[in-house]
Design a protein around this nucleic acid. Structure first.
Lengths: 204, 204, 204, 204
DNA sequence: GATGAATGAGCATTCATTCAT
DNA sequence: TATGAATGAATGCTCATTCAT
């Protein structure tokens, strides 16, 4: 039904907001249901457990963000620079439109890493998929001669990801609110910088 | 007394280990005391609360790492490149010798950010102190003409920090264990890369 | 719902019994829930805290006893002696029907007095309301010329209350069980005596 | 030793103060030792347990107050009115000089009654001894013809005690501080009233 | 006599989850 | 589908008591 989806979606949305500011373990099901305006039982009708909400969030991130950015790059018929621009464009726009989803993911990383849970497993999958995408992209740049031979694409792919992960945390820690001008400036700068890393001068 | 310090230190050490793998909220006082081989009450003799353990960890990080790296840079009489090398050397060596302390900090970031707690306050202080140090360093490079005029040191300082934060999380997520060759390789690569960002060719 | 009231009422009832014999601080929530035949969590579904149970008991005492006896006296259109009889009748019957409620109040007095808690505040309200009622009653007797001019109604009202408070403790200490003939005898004697204090010969 | 007595006495004194405002169970040994300026272990060197402090307080009350007032009455060679005056004089002066000891006793009554503890046993002994003393006194008044035949001395002795117990609680609840003029006025009034109860006009 | 670090049973409270309605 | 009262294991923390120094 349509109503169903709305309720489930609302629970998910409020969960993301809550996890964002209090962490996964720090958020109670009561807080989620209160925010969503439903009863406790309703949450458990839509999700088997609190862990399943976490799983749904990661699934959403995997499908919408990683899947989306992967499709964008894969389906592009352009060369490395074109693909890289598309890659960045998708990331920027997705972050702008789904900032909270981006943020929870980064925020939950530290809390879940090392927990040996199903969620950690999923995070590794996500991370690997993303890293692999970037590495493949960099390799293509290498093949085209745009990126010099001595760049270790494996490491550089991971550094790029790291810089992005860390940046979300930084924004959040510094800004508190996250839709500031600072964020936009940061994003632009990091894009250029990341390319400079690998020796590509873009935008000129 | 000497014994006293040892017990308190042991609790702190085991807390770091535990927070690292299960997060702050995910770690119980029982787990900490069991690991430290002391009774529940002993923890509360040395610390007023679980929160105070967290505070002690952040304090340790602030004093030993941020304080140490700050002193290193401030006390150096070298030019930008020399200072930057010293900055990196301290960071690398400290990470090697106190890897868990470095990791908990990064790991706890996401869990604490947004919590409006005393710990978040302290994290902001730490972050600002560190960012400011890096920015000042980059500014010096600019004055010396090593870094080009159009580099926004405010942003770049924060990107550097972000890359480092993110890298710790990545190592931890990927490696599980953290004293691998990969970590060393990563550290070296990131050092060069960070300098390339700001337009400096080092090591040659 | 009806069921709801029953469970909450049962917890309250068992709390009264428990506080009566072990004091407030000496009673554990385990004891209350075991006696009420509910799980630990159920207590906290109906009451926010153990303190709130205490508050509910005092509220009950204030509403049912002090409110009731106040209404009885206020609504009576009789003269002083008639009102005093009604006052005593209500007190005796209420004590007979709600002996435990009367007893906990007196029993908790000493434990709570001086604690600077919300409960102590409420006790002061109760005490003042009750003392004021008695004083007003005695003042009426004075106006009617039944009580002599030189009686300090302020002090006498408080002595009356004191005698009653003390008597409940005495019964409880001496009798252990509290529905004895002794109690009835004591009550009758104290009634006459209290009137003799203020110079009124009743019952003849 | 002399020093020993001083320390033990100080612990006792601070315990009385503490029990008075927070009750027996509400007072921690830490609070007592902090107030007394000694270490935790010192308390346990002088007293076997916290309960033993309570016992020492009751013992002190029994010996100094009940014993004292009993001796006063017994050793007096006067008639009923003279003895009654002496009885009241001792009580008033003792209360004035040892107000806190008087107050703890009354304050602890409700907390301990019904606890089936050793302390409750002792309280019963104290209460009986005191009640018996008063009753014997009233009986003597009866024999002298000062108190009318139809006065039930058993009940009246207990009412007198009750009025006194209750009065201490009232003072404490109303006044907060307890060395006010009000207390003195109260005491004088109750003395006259108690005698009027049994039909004796004193002081004129 | 005195100290205070260490102990661990016990406490009030929380919270994910269940289930009858 | 939705509710919310009920559950009870688990948690952070307290505190009387012990004991090596």
């Amino acid at each position: 039904m349509n109503e169903d989806k709305k309720v489930k979606e609302k629970i998910l949305e409020k969960s993301i907001k809550a996890f964002l500011s209090k962490g996964f373990r720090g958020t109670t099901t009561k807080e989620i249901t209160s925010a969503a305006g439903v009863a406790k039982g309703t949450l458990y009708w839509h999700f088997k457990s609190k862990d399943e909400i976490l799983d749904a969030i990661l699934e959403k991130f995997l499908k919408e963000f990683v899947g989306g950015i992967s499709d964008t790059v894969t389906n592009s018929s352009e060369n490395f620079v074109g693909k890289f621009k598309a890659f960045f464009k998708f990331g920027s726009e997705f972050s702008r439109d789904n900032l909270e989803l981006m943020l929870v993911y980064q925020t939950l990383l530290g809390e879940i890493v090392g927990s040996k849970s199903k969620a950690e497993m999923k995070m590794k999958v996500i991370q690997n998929r993303y890293d692999h995408l970037v590495q493949t992209l960099l390799d293509e740049g290498k093949k085209e001669g745009v990126i010099s031979e001595d760049v270790d694409t494996y490491i550089h792919a991971r550094i790029m990801t790291a810089a992005l992960i860390g940046s979300y945390l930084q924004w959040y820690l510094n800004a508190g609110s996250y839709d500031s001008e600072y964020v936009r400036l940061y994003a632009m700068t990091i894009r250029k910088t990341l390319l400079k890393w690998v020796g590509v001068e873009i935008d000129r």
